[in-house]
């Protein structure tokens, strides 16, 4: 059997089982366990390489199915005493779980239809966007990663490459010195300085590189933070206030 659907498409082992039951057009209360188990195992085998968060849950269900299948093969004892509880169908528990899960799946699609406004629903006054934003402080959300900083520096490097002169080496440019310079120059957050402006009076490539390395070191030490005021906005840098550890 050829499955085009990927395991990731399923919410879990019960969801996958329901899919197989529907596909085979069989009754949930009378599952042909051998057929379904084989299909389930084939499906799992095909998907095992996928890095699945819920793989363990899928495998647990596989074990359950195999166990039920083997119990179904054993001859069933006749119920001798009427008073004694009739022997349970090995599938009983699984069927209960499937039926319950299917019910919640239906309720979930009912909720989805309501969310989308496809079913009669009421509407409340909308909460103004500025009130909702309070939940996530902007500067935390738009922290700039080291790789984005490097990208910004590369762009700057390309752009300014003509401006940079190549003077004869006049002693080494010291990264340590540049760190001290940055700690002096940079404003303390929430005030900040545009990243590109740091380089406006830098005229040699060696100095630009040293300054950038100094900045990276400070970001790594979390003494400087690089943030974006909006997505794709310009990168600004500022000193982390002393008493306040970064989020």
């Amino acid at each position: 059997m050829d499955y085009q659907v990927r395991l990731e498409a399923f919410e879990g082992p019960l969801d996958l089982l329901l899919h197989l039951i529907e596909k085979n057009k069989v009754d949930i209360y009378d599952i042909p366990i051998a057929v379904i188990t084989d299909q389930y195992l084939a499906f799992i085998a095909d998907s095992v390489e996928a890095d699945l968060e819920n793989l363990a849950d899928f495998l647990l269900m596989a074990a359950t199915l195999v166990s039920i299948k083997s119990r179904m093969l054993l001859p069933r004892r006749k119920v001798v005493d009427e008073d004694e509880e009739a022997e349970e169908d090995p599938r009983e528990q699984l069927v209960q779980r499937l039926a319950l899960y299917r019910q919640y799946k239906e309720l979930a699609s009912h909720l989805a239809a309501r969310e989308e406004g496809e079913e009669p629903r009421v509407y409340y006054r909308e909460i103004p966007a500025d009130e909702q934003e309070e939940v996530v402080p902007v500067e935390v959300k738009l922290e700039v990663s080291i790789s984005e900083l490097v990208k910004a520096f590369q762009a700057l490097w390309q752009e300014k490459t003509d401006e940079f002169s190549y003077p004869l080496p006049q002693g080494d440019v010291d990264v340590g010195e540049k760190i001290a310079e940055l700690l002096q120059r940079l404003p303390v957050l929430p005030d900040a300085m545009v990243f590109q402006d740091l380089f406006w009076d830098v005229h040699s490539r060696r100095e630009a590189l040293a300054l950038f390395l100094a900045l990276l070191e400070l970001v790594r030490q979390r003494r400087v933070r690089a943030v974006q005021e909006e997505q794709f906005g310009c990168i600004v840098v500022g000193l982390q206030p002393e008493d306040d550890s970064p989020a």
Partner: peptide, 29 residues
């Protein structure tokens, strides 16, 4: 909301108050 979120919400809505293990028993994940 994702399917996973909707299923979880449906269970909380009908079973509340409900614990995480109880939700997990129903969803199987």
């Amino acid at each position: 909301l994702s399917q996973a979120a909707l299923e979880t919400l449906a269970i909380v809505a009908y079973q509340q108050p409900v614990t995480r293990p109880e939700i997990e028993a129903i969803r199987g994940v």
